[in-house]
């Protein structure tokens, strides 16, 4: 119960800021309820004794091989920029960040 109280509306607002998401009013209640349910569901990991266990971030014990730092395939800028909504003079355009 105490753990649920930690995931409240205030935390949800903060998570949305961190995630760059803006929820509709109709989504907020549902998502908060779902996140609390998911949190309760994953909380059983706290019952596992992991003292002296190293975290595993990659399933295989292998060295990461680095390739030579050289261009393999080149795709021209125009091809990529066709995927953007706003471009100009070869740049990606975003809303003004610094007011003149």
């Amino acid at each position: 119960m105490e753990r649920d109280q930690l995931l409240n509306e205030e935390i949800l607002v903060r998570l949305c800021q961190l995630s760059n998401l803006r929820l509709l009013e109709s989504e907020q209640g549902e998502l908060l309820h779902d996140l609390q349910t998911i949190k309760r569901f994953v909380d059983n990991i706290h019952g596992v004794d992991t003292r002296e266990v190293e975290p595993l971030s990659h399933p295989l014990d292998m060295d990461q091989v680095l390739r030579e730092d050289s261009t393999v395939d080149e795709i021209d800028r125009a091809t990529y920029q066709e995927l953007a909504r706003d471009i100009g003079d070869g740049y990606y355009l975003v809303p003004r960040v610094i007011e003149p």
Binding site: P55, L56, P59
Partner: peptide
């Protein structure tokens, strides 16, 4: 990190 440790187990 806890989940990553369980992953190893």
């Amino acid at each position: 990190m806890k989940a990553q440790k369980i992953r190893r187990l």
